[in-house]
Design a protein around this nucleic acid. Sequence first.
DNA 1: GATGAATGAGCGTTCATTCAT
DNA 2: AATGAATGAACGCTCATTCAT
Lengths: 217, 217, 217, 217
Amino acid sequence: MLKKLSAEKQLEILEIGIAEFAEHGPAKANINVIARNSGVSVGVLYKYYENKDALFLACLRHALTALERVISEVFQSSDKMLARTEKLIRALQRSAKEQPCYHILYHEITAGSCRQYASVFAREIEEISAAAYGALITQAQAEGTLRQDMDPRMFAFFFDNLLMMLQFSYCCDYYRERFEIYCGRDALSDDDKVASELLKFFESAFTTERSQIQHQN
Amino acid sequence: MLKKLSAEKQLEILEIGIAEFAEHGPAKANINVIARNSGVSVGVLYKYYENKDALFLACLRHALTALERVISEVFQSSDKMLARTEKLIRALQRSAKEQPCYHILYHEITAGSCRQYASVFAREIEEISAAAYGALITQAQAEGTLRQDMDPRMFAFFFDNLLMMLQFSYCCDYYRERFEIYCGRDALSDDDKVASELLKFFESAFTTERSQIQHQN
Amino acid sequence: MLKKLSAEKQLEILEIGIAEFAEHGPAKANINVIARNSGVSVGVLYKYYENKDALFLACLRHALTALERVISEVFQSSDKMLARTEKLIRALQRSAKEQPCYHILYHEITAGSCRQYASVFAREIEEISAAAYGALITQAQAEGTLRQDMDPRMFAFFFDNLLMMLQFSYCCDYYRERFEIYCGRDALSDDDKVASELLKFFESAFTTERSQIQHQN
Amino acid sequence: MLKKLSAEKQLEILEIGIAEFAEHGPAKANINVIARNSGVSVGVLYKYYENKDALFLACLRHALTALERVISEVFQSSDKMLARTEKLIRALQRSAKEQPCYHILYHEITAGSCRQYASVFAREIEEISAAAYGALITQAQAEGTLRQDMDPRMFAFFFDNLLMMLQFSYCCDYYRERFEIYCGRDALSDDDKVASELLKFFESAFTTERSQIQHQN
DNA sequence: GATGAATGAGCGTTCATTCAT
DNA sequence: AATGAATGAACGCTCATTCAT
């Protein structure tokens, strides 16, 4: 369906759309505003996207693709679990600050206004990371670098929960505010501190069992 | 706010409102539907609540008060850290299943459509739990039941992150779907398993440091 | 669904609607104009009629009911065929001049823009008159006041064709123009002449057969 | 009007336009669809036709010219009134089945959406046939093959009314449905029956007067 | 000249809010 | 005070028309 609109224009529409949808949510976002801000007419929007919903989904997909790229880059490396985790944390911190709207939009799918897409998108998005994390963790357990006594899938789940909350804490208004309340006004800027603290939190979870066994002896 | 409507009616309005706002999100929720379902006229709604926003906030406050009660009940006890954590997990599991809309509404504040209330509500809601968790953790560190090498506020933050994600995973469509993807179709019903796994994850974080020091030796 | 709007207001909306739909056709008729001209808000229109289509159908039904009344009044009488036909012609002439829009709307159903309702409305409207005319004609044949050698249904069909064209010729712009071209500028005002000529045309069709048989002898 | 487009292309545009206008009515017909289906750009359409209206009128004129040809072919012959009438009926039946859209378009001018062209087109189209029929009838009366006691113009009018309704009954959805209701499901296919019955109806009108005089004696 | 992407006025429809009863 | 009918601004979407290429 996309044909002639210059690639940059297409991208601009998506970027503007992402900003609008992220700012007001899919329900309150205004198609006419997106058109105006993109410097195109509504007609163009409707030439390329069947309706508001379709445009929203296109914005979403664009944002998610970018986020996936961030994650998958980290997964290219052959680092050990902890090193990789640190890279992941750093990448999310950077990305959430550089492209907050992408992460906000990701968060938006979890809200009620997107209820209709919930199951479709959950499968599309989370299945990938669930599999990646699950595999990583199973492998780590096999190598003995991760405690043996936890369900790897649940471990992956808690692991990703912390990462999701981390990214949202850098860009979603409410979570950012909460972040400051919990960790102090500087938390948002002191990425090193946050990264190292989260890493410590993870680290213990990774390695405790053996030590606990020692401890019990 | 006037005071003539019977207490039950007021409550009913709030309950119905919570259901409607939770189902459709604040933007798409329909005031006229709330009135009809509550068995009152829109006129009454506007007598008691200045506008849709005000009604939403009232519903929100009602839901949050109930959630706070759940938490604070757990905090009444003088249990040790781990025991208390388990109680918290169990309470959240139960509450998220019994009153999903309350939790959904809580989640809704974090979405873009509520951007305007973000900072106000974050303070109102999170300051309490942040303080409670922070105090608990500081105390636990003092007592030696919690590792010393972590920032207590950050620790509280990660701790609460996991609990928030837990509650959302039981009632918000997207998170529930994701929960199943990560942990399997039975995760939603096997509360014991989830509770024990999350507890293990926490436990290690609580106690690792000493053992790691041992480990380093 | 109709509940509180005063009966007169309801009627006014229908009348204004009929005028608007008759003037511009269903596709070009403007809901906001109908609302404005009726002295109500669009909201009211949409409270009583689900959408433009539903309003159009309501207008149509209103007009058709009035037209049916005109016809059925003529059919109350126990006149002979010819007398009744004359009454019918006169009634249609009068009605088409007094309430042109009703007839125009009836004509509108036959146009392409109403294609979707064609079969439903044809059954609803024409079945009644087809049956009435058919019965009348069969009876007339039995009584010997009508030629025997014609299919009564086809006879009824041609009979009604002439009456339909007659009514349209008094109110639909094109047909009126055509009427004048065929019959002269005065035709539109000289109802007596038109009635008597049409009657003569019918009369011969009613009674020819016997005489033709005589003729053939 | 420019003259560069190949004659075939011009014709194709008109044919496609006729189909589109006939199917959806002038108001809902879509210029862009006509362009696409014709294999030309909208730009070309607007080069040759000032606007949608002009294109519609061109389609109309094309359709009407074809219909006139059908009629005028019948009028070439030097048949007697009845024979000629039969030929006319047959020609209309055939044409209405072979090129339904042409007849549908003709019918469309009579609808409200074409109100603006009513008088112009009525003159253009009906004056010719009115004159032809009028002359024919006057001549027939002079020859004594037609009853003397009727206004020839009115006679021509009723005569044409029946023919118009006949052609519409073969192609316009509503009229076709009505045709079946009046004359049975087979009427549409049994052209012979319809032609003969209509001819009988006419025949009597042509010749009644004398026989009635005889009858009165 | 031909193209068809782009335009944007215009309309159908919704629903938060008001106010006459 | 309570009602709920009525309001009308606002927004999604269409498509006749234009114009840069």
